[in-house]
Each structure stands twice: as structure tokens, then as C-alpha cells.
Amino acid sequence: MAQLILNHLSKDFGSGRPAVADVSLTLRRQGFLALLGPSGCGKTTVLRMIAGFEQPSEGSIFYGERRLSDAERALPPEKRNMAMVFQSYALWPHMTVAENVGYPLKVRGISGAGWRKLVGEALSLIKLTEFAERRPAELSGGQRQRVALARCLVTQPDVVLLDEPLANLDQHLRKAMEETFRAFHERSGATMLYVTHDQAEAMALATDVAVMSQGRLLQVAPPAEIYARPEGRVVGGLIGRGSILRLRVPEVGERQLDWPLLRTSLGARGDAGDGGQADVLVRPEQVHRGTDGIPMRVVSCVFEGERFALSLSLPDGQQLKAYSSVAVVEGTLVPFVVSGGWRL
């Protein structure tokens, strides 16, 4: 098992702005990396370059010592020993479930009893043994996705690529599929790269999260780390449901801000005073009601099931999100304490 290394990878489709610009990334051995970013940020292009469907304009891709792609040459996808789960599932409609799952084996010359054994194992893992002779068209979306996953893992590929695999499934199925993916990752030991625009999915599944925006890689870190210590406005805004405030806070020193310091800057009114302003990320769970807090106006109060989501307005007009276990009357002034913030 070797590492997958992306080395100053760029891709320009000739539209002026490169789709991927100077992305360098090393995937941990047997790691599960989620590549997160808004639509059109270049994450799928990175995935397709790793698979070999696109050739980089600059930079290179290595698997261990083996050079897979650079601007001059690219190893064709069929020789990479990778597998991919497509957003559209990409199951072959003219083959049965078992034939779909077993096709990579068939191409590798495995047939007869060996083929049946491996396909049978894969199907029992995804709990679709009794569907072996069905056609993909007869399966539900979640079942199709599981077949696609089984097809990926039946040959023990070095790298498994997942392109927004849950985008077409409903919320309930997603949770179940996340479990399946995690179990598969542990079992197969393959390096997995998961492209998604859903940060909750990325956080729940991955051992590392990489955030991309406008073709550039902004930050790579484990989920808890990237949640607590995001770099810059884009990552801060993408990860979690925080609010980003412009506050006058010290621009050097500790980036984790506490309540006494925040109370001073929140009370100081953004427009007045001297010194620079900085972006401060405040998570909703860091905002509580408290008698020693700063009065904020409740703009909206929405019941979300397990709690109420509040939208608060600061004295200077900036908006802040908070959670509350009880309903709060909209339009009232309520004192709130901001127990922590993170300078981006």
C-alpha cells in the first residue's frame, strides 16, 4: 500500500480560469479523504485526473514510486487499479447485478468457481444476495449505489474514488449508506477519496477533510481540527453553520477568543474606534442566553425539531446564529453571551 501524491496539479480547460490550480496533496495510506467544496470548485476535476479521465495541464500524480500522470503522459484508467463510484451509479443496464459486480473480475480473467465465490461474498456484504439475477433497473437508488460500491471493492483496488455518491439519495438512506461506506473502508484498507459538497457527510465519514474553492486547495485537516480551527473566510463559512462577524480584535496572538475579549469588541460598535478589523467565526453552540450578555434583537426563531434556531442582530446590525431549547419571541431584545470565537 503506497501513498497517493498530487504534486502541484493544475488543469486548464482553456476557458481562461484554470479549473484546478496548483493542488498539492498527499493522501494518507489507507486514509479516507473527503474533498469538499461548492459546485464548480474543481473537486470533480481533481478526482477525474486521479482516475485518468483527464490529463493534468501541469503537475503530476504519483502512486508510491509510480508516476500515473503528468502533462506529457498519462497511464490510461484501465491500468491504474482504481475504482470509482459514480454519482449516476453507472451500472450497466444490460447486465444482472451479479454480472455488474463481477465484471472487473471477468476482465481480469477470473471465471468459474473463483468468480462465483468473490461475487457471492461481495453481494452478501451489501446484503443483496437474493438480487443477484435482477437487472439494475429493478433496484432502488440505495440498492444501486450498494451494487456500485460492491463492484468497486470486488477487485481490491489501491484507490477508491467516490464522486458525490449520495447526492441522489434521500436523507434517511444517506445515513445508512454512510455507515456502509465506513464499514467498507475499514474492511478493504483501500485509500478512499470522497468528493462531496455536503460538509456534514464529509465530517461524518472522512479521516481527513480537504476544502477546495475556485480551483485551489485551501486547507487539509482532520474533521475535528478543521471544524475548530478553519483557515480563512471560505473554509470558515463552508464548515459547520457558523456566522462570520467583522470585529475589532487584536490581529496577533491567540486566535481562540474568549468571552471577556469578545464582550469588549462586540460592545465597541464596529464603526467606531481605531485599529483593524478581523473576521471572527462564531458557532451557534457558542452563543447562549445569559444575564451578563449583550442585548441582541431576535430576528427569527425557527423550530428545527431538536431545538430552535435563532437569528440574532447585533447592535451594529451584523447577524449571528444561535440555538435555543425554548422558543423566543421574535423582535425582542435578549441578552446573549458569546462564549468563544475563532479569528479566521
Partner: peptide, 18 residues
């Protein structure tokens, strides 16, 4: 035809004629 159908076959290891 969804191009992913052919791409999936490529990643499965199938060359052009296959």
C-alpha cells in the same frame, strides 16, 4: 448514453475493444 458507463468499464480494467 451516460459517459460514466464507459468510464466505469475503463476503471474495471477493460481496454478499448473489450
Amino acid at each position: 448514453m451516460d459517459p460514466a458507463l464507459e468510464e466505469a468499464a475503463r476503471l474495471a480494467g477493460a481496454g478499448f475493444f473489450r
